[in-house]
Structure formats: structure tokens, C-alpha cells
Design a binder for these strands. Structure first.
Lengths: 335, 335
DNA sequence: TAGCCCTGTCGAAGCGCTTCGACTCGCTGA
DNA sequence: TCAGCGAGTCGAAGCGCTTCGACAGGGCTA
């Protein structure tokens, strides 16, 4: 491995000069800079990450805690993770992938060992165990998601309350008066995952305002679960004409089951989905939907974290405004 | 931050003794060990990762290069990534997430900076640009996937040739003589991604042996693409009674379209899928399938890499044997 | 022309850890 | 009885980098 000292010798300057060329923290004459850069090129020098971290006490690594549960909402998670990784690179950071398995201990470990300069947490619960630790530590952190108490924390998320409201507004505007909400798996609500509960809150609030009756049912993905959930819904509320679905893996089963039951979309029932753009546009009926801006969330969270690390950051909650795209799964309520 | 020296002082021993307690590389008396461990506890000591990496020239980090393309078989990737991360932790390693964006340069950067002790590469192409660099470097590496020339490399993958063969064997055994293969998106073949091509090879070889006619068509996921692909297939081969699908996002569209055309599964046509277990069992028809053992692949790749790092490793190709699970989407060919 | 500041460079002191002798015991075996 | 050994501990020398203070020289201002 080539070292700084070797580069310095090759270029005929001192080690500190090479360091300053690299960091730009002191002015260097053009001729010296060029000579050093040439030596770096020729020798194929790469600064040693460990030494750099030790000397500067900054590792240029951002830790990303993803949920362990592979059952849940996986494509969105992956999209966020990749957006985080690529955005981080453009700011000179690498990303350390932590799974939820370690739990809150991971926060302690990473902060204690100075392995990462900052952390981004996904899958935030309303009363997340990791938050107290996060507040204690001096490490920069950003949540993707919104806990019950966001005080002193920086959060990035889709505005799920507004999302829920938007869906209801759209259906109400089309004359629907009985709406069913197909939610995430029950476990998601049991963990009090922020986004799921907030969506339902937004739906209920707007429904009350608009005079719409709402029935909310959690649902595991897949056919069997969806079939059961659907038949219960129609038992309880035969007059249901609108659906809001917030579970990717329930979307296609729902559409198929409605079809099998002879209910036409959107003539008999309307469906609004809260899901990634791709799912909505590639479903068997092109879905009216509110997109989950996974990439944007990943990108913004990194930008927030980098701002904090460079001292420009503030603690604030950034909620991305939802956008509803009308496609072919919603129409006027039947008479 | 608490340092080794502080722990040493607190416990009344020298720094090196604390270090040996931590690493276990020299024998330590029970009483000293306990005293040191107590101090570590009380002070909440965590070794500084950078200092450790610098002194020992091992970072205890494994780099994982995932493909950038978010469009492509994403859930499998995520599952592998999570399996890699959790398995790595059980061996004392953390995982650095690299996207394909940087390309081969990432290999150079990581190796040069000693940021990671080893690398795991996903989404391997038959003639992958990263391989020459990998062979040059002394870093341990494992591929998830199989390039054309695996000489001197360690690879872990599902045996996709055997997978293809297994699918054909199953259909042939049921009397099917005209089989269509719905493949991955054309771009996947253009990049000469190992697994996609190997599957087709395996299919063709076994088909020839079994006297089965095969028509292979790449297919983007989603309804529009699948509809077009399907109509072309029946135009060209009206007698097609068997399908092999290797594209998660084509599965559900295919089933729906067949249904719409009045072709019953499995009475009129049989469908075998190559996809994650979950997709197969939750589809609208429970699918006969060969599972993609994502977790297993992630786990094995880490174990291989750890073996290499501890000197027990060998260069070898480990192909996981495919298993076909018969469910409700395949049956005897119609007369 | 003296004094000052600015630019560009260097030397040296760490950062916190690992690891290699080296040293001290108390034992064992000849 | 004493060399020799293993167990247990310590001190010191780095690992490769960043960064601080110092300093030389040139161009200003006064």
C-alpha cells in the first residue's frame, strides 16, 4: 500500500503539504499542487481510511439502520437504501448497513466506536426505543419517519396524514360515501409504526369533515388474507364503493378479487393506492395513487445529515407533500 | 469518548493488558480479566474503530456491492443484503453498502483505502469489469453469481442451469411438448448477466434431451409488456402449453392475462416460476416454482468471505442445488 | 526603509490502538 | 540445586494520517 509519506517523497515535498493538497485546508501553490497530484496518480495512492479516521476523528461513514423484517414493504426500503447510498457518495460519504436485529444496542455501538459520523434510521416507531439513545449521543442523526415526539430530532418523511386526507378528498369529491381502508399487516400497527397510524389519522379526520364513513382493516399481503379481509368488509359495509390501499402486496389481490366478484373498477368501486409509482402504473388496472417518494426521502435524509455534519443543520421535521395522480381506478360513485 | 488508556488506569493495569483482554491473544489471569471487564462495563468503553483499523490493518468491515438498477428483481436483492448484514454481524463484521454507480472504481477505492477487509459482489455479469481488479488485489472477495470465467474466484449462486433443467424436466414429465420461457428484461441479457443466461442454457439443454420445443422471450415486468409478449408467443407457437417464468414482476400479469383469455391454469396451460418462495405461494394461483434462496446465498457468501479472512478459505464455486416445489399451477398437458 | 501581513511550506506532536520483545515469577525436571 | 519454561504483565514502538505552530520570503503600507 502506498502511503502519504511515499507520495511526499516522490513529489519532493513534506507529508503535511500532501495532506493539505488533499484536503484543501491551506493554500498551496499551483506548481506544488500539480506535482503532488501527479505523484498521487502515478503511485496510485489512496488515503488509508483508518488512519484518516483516527487523526481527524471523522470516518466519513453514515450508518443506515434498516428494519430487519424482510416481510415488510421491501421494495420501498431498498429504494430508499440505494438512494441513501448514492447520495452519500456524492457528498464523500460511504454507508454502513445495519439491520434492526441489534436493536438499540447498535446505536450505542456505532456512536461509541466512532465507526460512523452520523446515522439515518428507517422504520421509526412512534415510541422508538432508539430515540433516547439518539438524543444522548452527540452523533448527527436523521429519521426517515416520524415518531410521536420529534423534539430535538431531525425527521424526513412523506406527510402521511396529508396523504390519507388527500385520498379521502379525492373519493369524496367523486361522491363516495362509504370507504374501506386496506392497511398494512396488523403487526405494523402493533409496533405503532408512525406512517401507518398517521395515514389512518389523516383519513379519519378528513372523512369526518367530508361526511364519509370509514372502515379500516389491517391486512397481510397475498390472496388468502385479502380474500378474507374483503369478504368481511362487504359483510359489514355492503355499501362500500371506495377503497384506499396502503399495502403493496394487497393491491393486486384486491383488484383480482373485485374482478372475480363481478365488481368493475372503477364503475362499481374505486380504488386509491398509496404505493410506489411503479406498482401503481404496472398494476392490472392503472391505479389512481399517491406515490411514496422513496428516492426523495433517501436523498433528503442524507442532505440533512450532511448539513448537520457541516454545521449548517437544524433540527426540523421535513414532511414531503403528497401528490395524487389520477389514473384509471377511480371514478364517480355509482348511484 | 472513553479510551483504552482510561480503562487501563481504572483497572490498574497497562494498556496492553486491556488490549489482550479484548482480543484474547495472550493469556490473562482470571482476576485481571474480571477487573478489566468490570472497568470496561463501568466506563462504557467501546474501542475506537479507526484506531483499531490503523493498528491492526483490519477494519472488520465487509463491502457489499449491490446493483444500482432499482428496477430489477429488487426484493431478492434486499433479502440477500439483509442476510449478508445479519450474518456478518454474527462474525463480528459490519457491512458497507456500495451501489454499482461507482462501477469498477469502487473496487479500487475500497481496496486502496483499506476501508473494508473483503468484498461481496452481487449482480455479476459474465464478463464483469470488476473481475480483473479483483484478481489483482489481495483483498478477499466473493461473488454472488457466476461469471464466465470463475478461475481464482470464489462464487456462491443458485445453480441456474440445473434450475432451468429442473423446470423443463417437470413440464416434460407432465407431457408438455411446447414450452415458452418468459425471461428477465432484455437489458438483463444485454448485460450478459450470468444467472439469466445460465437458466436459458439449462432449459435449452434439457429441452433438447427431452424432446421439448422451447421459445424464449425476454420480458419487462408489468401488464402492457406481458400482454404483448404473450400474444406474440401464441402467435408464433399456438400449441404452447407450458410456461417457465423468470421475472417476478411478470408472474401476476401472466396469470391474469391467461385467465382473461379463458385459458385455465393448470388445466389448459401449466406455469413454473423461478422466484422467491413468498411470491410463489402468494400469487393468485399458488405456483409450482423453484425458489431463489436469497437468504442462503447471502449467508453462504459471508461465511466464505470470513473463511478466507481467517485463512481457512479456498477458491471454489459453490452452487446451491435448486428445489422444485409442486403447487397448483402445473398439471398434465391437455390432449 | 522598517514593519507588517499574507502565502506557501515544513516539522512534530499526537489520534487510540495492536503487537513485539522483554521481564518477573513460580515451577518443573534433571 | 539450578537452568529452563510457561504464564502473566508491561513498555514502547509504531500504524498513516491531520493539524498546529513556526518560519521564510515577498509585497504592501506608512
Amino acid at each position: 500500500m502506498v502511503t502519504l509519506a511515499e507520495v511526499a517523497q516522490h513529489a519532493g515535498v513534506s507529508a503535511s503539504t500532501v495532506s493539505y493538497v488533499l484536503s484543501g485546508k491551506r493554500s498551496i501553490s499551483v506548481s506544488t499542487r500539480e506535482r503532488v497530484e501527479l505523484s498521487i496518480q502515478q503511485l496510485g495512492y489512496h488515503p488509508n481510511a483508518g488512519a484518516r479516521a483516527l487523526a481527524s476523528s471523522r470516518s466519513n461513514i453514515i450508518a443506515l439502520m434498516v428494519p430487519l423484517r424482510t416481510d415488510m414493504y421491501v421494495p420501498v426500503m431498498m429504494e430508499i437504501a440505494i438512494a441513501v447510498a448514492t447520495t452519500a457518495r456524492t457528498h464523500g460519504y460511504d454507508v454502513l448497513l445495519l439491520t434492526g436485529e441489534e436493536g438499540p444496542a447498535a446505536v450505542r455501538r456505532i456512536a461509541g466506536s466512532s465507526l460512523a459520523d452520523a446515522m439515518i434510521l428507517m422504520d421509526v416507531e412512534l415510541h422508538d426505543e432508539r430515540l433516547p439513545l439518539l438524543r444522548e449521543t452527540d452523533r448527527a442523526a436523521v429519521l426517515i419517519g416520524l415518531p410521536a415526539d420529534a423534539d430535538g430530532l431531525t425527521c424526513v418523511d412523506l406527510d402521511f396524514e396529508a396523504t390519507g386526507a388527500l385520498c379521502v378528498e379525492h373519493l369524496a369529491g367523486l361522491g363516495h360515501r362509504e370507504v374501506a381502508v386496506i392497511g398494512e399487516a396488523a403487526a405494523v400497527y402493533e409496533r405503532h409504526t408512525g406512517f401507518a397510524e398517521r395515514t389512518v389519522d389523516g383519513i379519519r379526520a378528513k372523512a369526518q369533515e367530508a361526511g364519509v364513513r370509514v372502515l379500516h382493516r389491517p391486512c397481510e399481503g397475498g390472496y388468502p388474507a385479502m380474500a378474507q379481509t374483503l369478504s368481511r368488509i362487504f359483510d359489514e359495509r355492503p355499501g362500500t364503493t371506495g377503497f384506499i390501499v396502503q399495502n403493496e402486496s394487497a393491491v393486486e389481490p384486491l383488484l383480482n378479487l373485485l374482478r372475480q366478484q363481478g365488481r368493475a373498477v372503477p364503475e362499481d368501486v374505486s380504488v386509491v393506492a398509496i404505493c410506489p409509482e411503479q406498482v401503481a402504473s404496472q398494476a392490472s388496472v392503472r391505479l389512481t395513487s399517491v406515490a411514496i417518494p422513496a428516492q426523495e426521502m433517501g436523498r433528503r435524509s442524507v442532505e440533512q445529515v450532511v448539513a448537520k455534519l457541516t454545521g449548517r443543520g437544524t433540527d426540523e421535521v421535513e414532511l414531503l407533500a403528497p401528490e395524487l395522480t389520477v389514473r384509471e381506478s377511480t371514478g364517480p360513485a355509482p348511484r
